[in-house]
Write a protein that binds this DNA or RNA. Structure first.
Lengths: 238, 238
DNA sequence: CGGAATGTTGATTATATTCAACTGTTGTGG
DNA sequence: CCACAACAGTTGAATATAATCAACATTCCG
């Protein structure tokens, strides 16, 4: 088994079973049904920069990320884009489009060398008709995406660029070993993170510089040290 | 039965059964389960302008509109708002927040004298655990809301004010008896429609005037006649 | 009729985009 | 390992879009 085809497609049973059984999508689902879904799925390896699907195409099923990451992005006029979501390991997307048999509303691009599993529509729909638990999982995951997006709307509507950046950095902050500071490792390059925040790379650069000048953060490449987290959070209130 | 309480609350069985059984949410669901859900629900009458719920409150269940309409809106800074959705007769909202037991992310306000049914969380969750068809309906409805919202993001990101207005008018256009034109009846006053389009009332006024000056539409109160629909649609492409 | 809500219009301003030039970084093939 | 091309990021100046402020007009209702 474990055949790795030239284009990176495969049906490695172990790999697929391992990946699927760890997904929130399959939490609580009977093992034999997970195995069956895995048997109907296939894996795909993608190089950084690969366009998986374009807007208006049909997804070949629900997509689960094994390792690496992808971005889901809306096209703006002029090659510009707005990133809706980064999808990392053990996350899935495409539940809603598969369920409703709709075209994909976003472009999907690998941000790093990435492995995904493709769970075909018939497998998803069959399982939904078989197991309440799975149907419920689908509903919950779609519901979470929905509420997440409402939150995005909220912040795009009531916060300006600095505030969105501050909120974003705050949400990614992790303890910085020993020091009295926090650290953020951006999940993509600055241009892409800018698109995630809904600004251009130029604006992003200026916003980072502004926070740096105010002494709130220090930037080096993709690493950002939060020097004064309290004051950063303060930006959101005032 | 049919007791109408002073505050407009009630448990009119007929009314609730009639309303619930017509909802997409209950399509295909066994009649006895619909009746049971109706028996656990209550109706509520609201005067125009009533605030049903505010952001961060818990919804008392899934809300179904019987007659009238409500708006779901995000608060901006300074009393301003962004309307995410108008909800009219036989439509529901709140599935995601009930399913995930999350606070309501929007303010909900009656736009006219309105009757709603409230289907409490335990009724919804019980039914989801009982009937696959219902669970599937919930997933589909949440999925539709989600894709709808992605579409909103798309248009807010890649279209300017005029284009959003043009697309909106186009989406509401109905044949104008006899004449070679189309007619739109706005679902709310202009200030509220402006908030739905993500602009201020001042900008909305200017946009309407612009389209009027170009001879594409004629506005009188809430009624808008589309004189040149082709050219209106043209705005979206160019 | 009269007051409140809604809508219009003009002037000014804030926010971020666009354009353009330049610098720094990365990864690849010779 | 270096050279170099492609990509990523920075900076400044000019610009676009719609928001905000302020004053006024209109419509809606009780």
């Amino acid at each position: 088994m474990a055949a790795i085809l030239p284009n990176g497609n495969g049906r490695d049973a172990r790999l697929l079973e391992g990946l699927l059984s760890n997904l929130p999508l399959f939490r609580g689902v009977q093992a034999r049904n997970v195995l069956q879904a895995a048997a109907q799925s296939r894996s795909q390896r993608l190089r950084r920069g690969t366009v998986l699907y374009r807007r208006d195409e049909r997804l070949p099923g629900v997509v689960a990320v094994g390792y690496g990451s992808v971005k889901l992005a809306l096209r703006r006029n002029g090659g510009d884009e707005k990133v809706l979501r980064f999808v990392g390991p053990n996350e899935t997307f495409g539940e809603a489009t598969v369920l409703l048999d709709r075209p994909c509303p976003v472009d999907i691009v690998a941000l790093a060398d990435t492995m995904v599993a493709l769970i075909p529509p018939h497998a998803v729909l069959r399982l939904m008709a078989q197991e309440l638990c799975f149907a419920r999982n689908v509903a919950c995951l779609v519901g979470e995406s929905f509420l997440e997006l409402v939150g995005e709307f909220q912040s795009s509507v009531q916060r300006n660029g600095v505030q969105r950046l501050a909120a974003y950095l705050d949400s990614l902050a992790e303890p910085n070993g020993g020091a009295d500071t926090w650290i953020v490792r951006l999940p993509a390059n600055k241009t892409t993170v800018a698109a995630r925040l809904g600004v251009t790379k130029e604006t992003m650069s200026r916003l980072l510089r502004e926070l740096t000048n105010r002494g709130l953060i220090e930037v080096s490449r993709r690493e950002i040290v939060i020097i004064d987290r309290a004051q950063l959070a303060q930006l959101l209130a005032g």
